[in-house]
């Protein structure tokens, strides 16, 4: 090989590296959940509005459900709220709200203002359950099957597209699988 080609070749390789970097740039902030296809973390949390009542992971075994982590401080949660509401109104799956790092007054006022699509909202104010779920942003949405296994996670704003291409087919698959 001509030694003059070496710098050119090195440059082309560097260029390729940069192009790959650019292509995956929007995926770099996305971290795939290590929880996928594993049992959902155990929790036992007070219900928003009636803090004397607690619900645990076991309370939900036997049917698939969606867990939506949200907070009244979270702008994107507000943006995705109509989509979560739409999903709840389809009546194909229970939608459970996980209100974290929040205050009950703020959360209740938020639900009053924007509507309450959740079958039940649990409060995780010391954020321990959110840490167990590996939540690092808000909103984050998990689909958990009837056996309590995490089958899907969506990071950030929920969209109709994600519901139609990711969530609904998985729920349909669970029903036909039984």
């Amino acid at each position: 090989m001509n030694s003059r080609m070496v710098p050119l070749l090195a440059f082309i390789m560097l260029l390729a590296l940069l192009l790959v970097g650019l292509k995956i740039a929007d995926r770099k902030t996305f971290i795939p959940s290590p929880l996928l296809n594993k049992p959902a973390p155990a929790f036992n949390l007070p219900v928003l509005g009636s803090p004397e009542k607690h619900l645990s992971k076991e309370s939900f075994i036997g049917r698939p459900y969606v867990v939506n982590f949200w907070g009244s401080w979270c702008i994107t949660c507000r943006a995705e709220h109509p989509v979560i509401t739409h999903l709840a109104k389809m009546n194909v799956v229970s939608v459970v709200g996980m209100n974290f790092r929040d205050e009950p007054e703020d959360a209740i006022a938020w639900l009053k203002q924007f509507g309450n699509p959740y079958e039940v909202t649990l409060t995780d104010y010391d954020a321990r359950t959110s840490v167990d779920f590996g939540v690092y942003a808000a909103p984050e949405t998990f689909l958990i099957d009837d056996k309590g296994t995490v089958v899907f996670k969506h990071l950030g704003q929920m969209t109709m597209d994600v519901i139609e291409t990711e969530i609904l087919p998985r729920i349909a698959g669970m029903e036909s699988g039984n």
Binding site: I31, P34, F133, G134
Partner: peptide, 8 residues
């Protein structure tokens, strides 16, 4: 932490 958040 890795079990919850991955190697990242």
């Amino acid at each position: 932490l890795v079990e919850r958040y991955g190697d990242f």
